[in-house]
C-alpha cells in the first residue's frame, strides 16, 4: 500500500492533521517529532502510556525486597546489636526505601523499552533526518485510490512538502 509523508513545521498543524486523518478513518498513521509535544502525541495515541505499571511493579517489588531481605538476614544469623530487636523496622526502612527507588527506576526504564518498542532495529521508510531537526513528519499508509485525498488533506494543513515514499 502506498505510504505518504507530509512535512510540517508546526506541532499544532501536525496535531490537527493527525486528528483529521483519523476522523476520516485512516488508522495507519505515524508522526515524527523533534521534541515532545503532548498535542501531537495525544492526537495519535489517546491513552496515557502504560509505563506507570512498570514503575508501580518495580516500586512494590523494591519495598517488599527491602524489608524481606533485611528481616530474613537478621533472623538467619541472630546477633543482638545494640539491644535492638532482630527485625528493627526503622533502620530497615532506609534499605526498603532505597530499593523501592532502585527497582522502581530500573523497571521504569524497562517500561520505556517495552512500551516505546525500543530498541528499534529497522529505520522506517518514512523517517527523515529532518525530523530530528526542527520539522515534523506525518506518514500515512492508505489504499491507492485514497492517495489524492490524503495528499490533499496534508496540503490543506500547510504541509511544506508531501512525498510518496512507497507506491
Amino acid at each position: 500500500m502506498p505510504l505518504l509523508v507530509g512535512v510540517f513545521d508546526r506541532p499544532d498543524r501536525v496535531a490537527d492533521v493527525a486528528k483529521k486523518l483519523r476522523g476520516r478513518g485512516y488508522e495507519d498513521i505515524e508522526t515524527y517529532s523533534p521534541a515532545p509535544f503532548a498535542e501531537v502525541d495525544d492526537a495519535v495515541l489517546e491513552k496515557p502510556s502504560r509505563v506507570r505499571i512498570f514503575t508501580l511493579i518495580g516500586g512494590l517489588t523494591g519495598v517488599v525486597t527491602g524489608y524481606a531481605m533485611t528481616i530474613w538476614m537478621a533472623y538467619n544469623w541472630k546477633i543482638v546489636i545494640g539491644g535492638k530487636p532482630f527485625a528493627s523496622i526503622p533502620p530497615y526502612t532506609v534499605i526498603a526505601f532505597e530499593l523501592t527507588i532502585l527497582f522502581g527506576g530500573l523497571l521504569t526504564a524497562l517500561g520505556l523499552f517495552v512500551i516505546g518498542r525500543l530498541p528499534r532495529f529497522r529505520r522506517d521508510a518514512a523517517y527523515d533526518a529532518r525530523f530530528s531537526g526542527e520539522e515534523f513528519g506525518v506518514s500515512v499508509r492508505c489504499r491507492d485510490r485514497d492517495v489524492p485525498e490524503v495528499d490533499g488533506l496534508l496540503r490543506a494543513h500547510d504541509a511544506t512538502e508531501v512525498t510518496l515514499v512507497e507506491s
Binding site: S33, V51, I115, Y127
Partner: peptide, 15 residues
Amino acid sequence: GWQGTSREWKSHSRT
C-alpha cells in the same frame, strides 16, 4: 533506533 514517533515520545515523557 529512536525516531521520535508519538509512541516513543509518549513513553519517554512518561518515563
